[in-house]
Design a protein around this nucleic acid. Structure first.
Lengths: 193, 193
DNA sequence: GTAATTATTTATCATATGTAAAATGATAGA
DNA sequence: TCTATCATTTTACATATGATAAATAATTAC
């Protein structure tokens, strides 16, 4: 895939949230850069303030953090996801989270300080990203509900329902921590059928 | 507290996220209404699409839902909180969640369809609410992390640290479901000291 | 003020899930 | 191809938490 094609794909995807003015779109495009990262490499290390927003074009990323030395997966981010560590992006504080590629991944990166500046001149861009973040917010609220009161098995079955491909594409240890259970427990559940 | 005072308090609080233009502020004020609800009453029942956003001025609200007939508290919303069932507000779908008063509560209500229309003319209002929602998003992400991998005791201690007053003000059954544990388990933990 | 309701704690028991370690299976590099 | 590493499953055991029911304690309604 050419850089040009990747950026077009990102812009098209972002436009699906809200179509910005022609000029806003052109300004936005100027801040898009493409990148490629190979499996298991880190796109962003733990400990830095998040100032870049990624659109995954092809591949699989995950956001993760370390809790008592253990690697916990916060989210899987497949193609056509906006990927950012929002708790850092919106607070300006250093993130304890990192972004890693679980597959070779093509992405588009947008630097957020200039992006947020663009909002002043182009309300349609602010509208667009407001909707992007609202959608992320909704996903997070729904996930919260799923974690709040489901058994390990229920959480597994829900993932199987909603993102079955993740189970093929990501190591099960990451799936386990994503579900908030141990890998042993996950293995047990999978053995049931 | 007079209606006028409540609205001023709400506007002042909202302005702390982003100061809108004078005119935007005046338009916003026109859509603010005040209300009072007594303890245990429902502000919003389960099953309706969320089209109102509340600012809690004084008192305590909670967002809750029913899971297999059991009452689960999703969040506690004390004074100076923006209260909305975002998964419905942003998707237009009916919410399975309700809003209930845990104390006599004074609130300001803002109808969202006209509010969102105001955004077209007043980007500074869109900016303001974008920041309000971003802050909510960050809280939710952090709470997700707390639920993903903490024991019942850790979650209780964290609540004790961050919102100790909730334990005095809300029935423990709601605290238990909020933490994703049973009331019996919560009682055990509390008995440790 | 008393009864009735609701909230909270305590007790007992069952079980899902965690921990640790070993066994098996898959993948990648030399 | 062989070795080394990593991923996954399995086993055995410990334990936190859930479920149920009963006992107190606190609120509310009459």
């Amino acid at each position: 895939m050419t850089n040009e094609a990747a950026i077009q794909k990102a812009l098209q995807y972002l436009s699906s949230f809200h179509r910005p003015s022609q000029e806003a779109m052109e300004r936005l495009q100027e801040y898009c850069t493409t990148g490629f990262i190979t499996k298991n490499k880190n796109l962003q290390p733990v400990g830095h303030t998040c100032r870049t927003l990624y659109v995954n074009i092809e591949g699989l990323l995950r956001i993760y953090y370390l809790k008592d030395g253990k690697d916990i997966t916060e989210s899987f981010e497949p193609a056509l996801s906006v990927v950012a560590r929002v708790e850092s992006l919106f607070s300006g504080r250093a993130s304890r989270k990192g972004i890693q590629a679980l597959e070779d991944t093509v992405y588009v990166a947008i630097s957020t300080p200039p992006l947020f500046k663009l909002f002043d001149k182009h309300p349609s861009l602010e509208r667009l990203f407001r909707k992007v973040f609202e959608a992320g917010y909704v996903r997070t609220v729904n996930r919260l509900e799923s974690l709040q009161f489901h058994s390990a098995e229920e959480k597994y079955r829900q993932l199987l329902e909603e993102q079955p491909d993740i189970l093929q594409r990501a190591p099960l240890k990451h799936v386990a921590s994503y579900l908030g259970i141990t890998q042993v427990s996950l293995s047990r559940i999978r053995a049931l059928r």
